[in-house]
């Protein structure tokens, strides 16, 4: 088998290069002095300084972070409930429909989710007067709807690996069902909850299309600002922003990975 591995290794190297070269270039050119992003003219951090003075962008980032955190928290709750349902109740009426509703958001094109939720919010506003106007609440609801499906996938995987006899042992030793869940189940699936939370957070922070549909006039999220700037062409400020995001995510993933390893 050994001698046949080199074409495979070639593919692997090519694949990783394909995935990482654009990101690396993005980071390198964020330190470029020139306004022309692709012409190297010297090392500079001026774009970072300008970025920090861009009030519109900072406002949008703050809104996005608030939405992302609210979304992640609620999506973890709902996604965990859904995972409980799928793992703990192997048979219930409407399970097929439940599973369908939980898988569909994973692949459903963003434009469809965005459009349909906007039409729902408009109809609801007409019908029951809520939500009055669109913004933080509607974007958060929309994000929860698709990110809870991702959380459910992550938590479900962990939950179905969990040795049921641990919970039974706790119950046998006198813990009531809710106590068992709090003292045994939750601590044991905590790593999945953490990665589910991070996943939901980044999914929300990353979403342009759905947010564009369900946002109101006063609520511009970070991706919307990036998008309108990118449409004008490449901009060194966006490179700087991208670098910050990549570093932040890498840091979060490494921290999450380390904390998971320690728990084992």
């Amino acid at each position: 088998m050994k001698r046949r591995r080199w074409p495979l290794l070639g593919m692997l190297v090519f694949g990783y290069a394909f995935l990482y070269v654009p990101i690396v270039l993005l980071i390198v050119y964020s330190f470029n002095e020139s306004r022309l992003v692709t012409v190297w003219s010297g090392f500079s951090t001026r774009w970072y300084a300008e970025l920090l003075r861009n009030q519109q962008l900072l406002d949008a980032a703050w809104l996005s972070v608030r939405i992302a955190a609210t979304n992640a928290t609620l999506a973890v709750v709902l996604g965990t409930l859904a995972a409980n349902a799928l793992v703990r109740h192997p048979r219930f009426r409407g399970r097929a429909g439940f599973e369908l509703l939980l898988t569909a958001p994973l692949v459903m094109p963003d434009v469809i989710i965005g459009l349909s939720l906007l039409l729902l919010f408009v109809a609801m506003q007409q019908g029951i007067g809520w939500p009055a106007g669109r913004g933080f609440t509607t974007i958060t609801i929309a994000h929860i709807t698709f990110s809870m499906a991702y959380v459910a996938v992550v938590v479900r995987a962990r939950l179905s690996q969990l040795d049921r006899s641990l919970e039974e042992a706790a119950m046998d030793l006198g813990a009531r069902p809710l106590g068992v869940y709090r003292m045994i189940t939750l601590p044991l699936i905590a790593p999945a909850l953490l990665s589910g939370w991070l996943l939901a957070f980044t999914l929300s922070l990353d979403d342009l299309v759905i947010a564009s549909f369900v946002a109101g006039p006063g609520s511009t999220t970070l991706p919307m600002v990036i998008y309108s700037s990118v449409r004008m062409g490449v901009s060194p400020q966006i490179n700087a922003l991208a670098t910050l995001i990549v570093l932040l995510v890498a840091l979060a993933v490494i921290v999450a990975g380390l904390s998971m390893r320690q728990r084992r």
């Binding site: 995935l19 993005l26 692709t38 990353d206 966006i238 995001i245 993933v253």
Partner: peptide, 24 residues
């Protein structure tokens, strides 16, 4: 595997944007 998952965590919009500078 981590290296496959990592880009998935970084902004999709920004990763697409990166290609503009490369391909133009």
């Amino acid at each position: 595997l981590m290296l496959i998952i990592l880009p998935f965590w970084t902004s999709f919009l920004i990763r697409v944007y990166a290609w503009i500078g490369i391909l133009k």
